[in-house]
């Protein structure tokens, strides 16, 4: 469904992605893992068209999408829940959802999607007239996810949805992700919360400094000593020199 081949991307002169290739098959939940600054967010930005790759190709549903305008990519069925939520703080919860459905022209469909958003997270209905900036972190994340779901995307990009949330809320968010996955939405998930993420993911990619370093299923990645050291907290203490990248 989604396929990146040799994607390189820059911020000005800084190269953030050094030839990333990855694939998200239809109906699967694929996870990207990696330390801060590895380039996870950048991958998602190139997919949704916020950042144009310098080289390489991105295909979605057999169609080449790199170089397209973000609104056209969204229109094809790619939903993106960005890192740090990026809700519209000075719009009401209701207006945020309406903006999520900007591309819907049929009023009845819009109403229906609004209903299902309120059904999924009733707290959003309770707060529908409130400015989104006044919501708690967890509620904002629910709003960000619901906003992206207004268009019923075929592929959902989720960038660290559990960041900064209490364990209880993390659980709720992951339950929602699993439920979406079960209902047939293809998902590309970026997470630091690796135990949770790999438990629900079908496949994982490990990214270091803009390159894919490892990939495999949960079981395969678990067996990799490096992954255990780096992420699963099971490793031996790293030699100081390695800590400083020497």
């Amino acid at each position: 469904m989604l396929k990146l081949i040799g994607v390189e991307a820059f911020y000005g002169k800084i190269k953030a992605l050094h030839g990333v290739s990855l694939e998200v098959p239809h109906g699967k939940l694929v996870c990207i893992l990696g330390a801060n600054g590895a380039g996870k967010t950048t991958i998602l930005k190139t997919v949704s068209g916020i950042l144009e790759p310098e080289t390489g190709t991105i295909h979605f549903d057999q169609q080449r999408i790199d170089g397209m305008d973000p609104e056209d990519i969204v229109g094809l069925g790619v939903g993106h829940v960005p890192e740090n939520r990026h809700i519209f703080p000075e719009l009401t919860v209701y207006e945020n959802l309406i903006m999520g459905g900007f591309l819907i022209n049929d009023k009845a469909i819009l109403e229906e999607r609004l209903e299902s958003a309120y059904h999924r997270f009733p707290v959003l209905q309770d707060r529908s007239r409130q400015l989104a900036g006044t919501l708690s972190g967890g509620e904002q994340q629910m709003l960000a996810i619901s906003r992206a779901l207004m268009l019923q995307p075929k592929l959902l990009l989720l960038d660290e949805p559990s960041l900064g949330l209490s364990p209880l809320l993390v659980q709720e968010i992951f339950d929602t992700i699993e439920e979406l996955h079960r209902s047939g939405v293809t998902i590309l998930l970026v997470e630091q919360n690796i135990n949770q993420a790999l438990r629900i993911a079908d496949y994982g990619y490990v990214l270091t400094s803009g390159k894919i370093f490892l990939s495999g299923t949960y079981e395969e990645l678990r067996r990799e000593e490096k992954v255990r050291e780096m992420y699963l907290g099971e490793g031996k203490y790293v030699r100081r020199a390695r800590l400083w990248g020497m």
């Binding site: 973000p70 609104e71 960005p82 000075e90 903006m99 999520g100």
Partner: peptide, 17 residues
């Protein structure tokens, strides 16, 4: 209003910025 608040988020929801 949404675009002036957060152009990136506006792009991501499909607003033709």
């Amino acid at each position: 209003k949404a675009t002036s608040e957060d152009p990136m988020a506006a792009h991501l929801v499909g607003i033709p910025v």
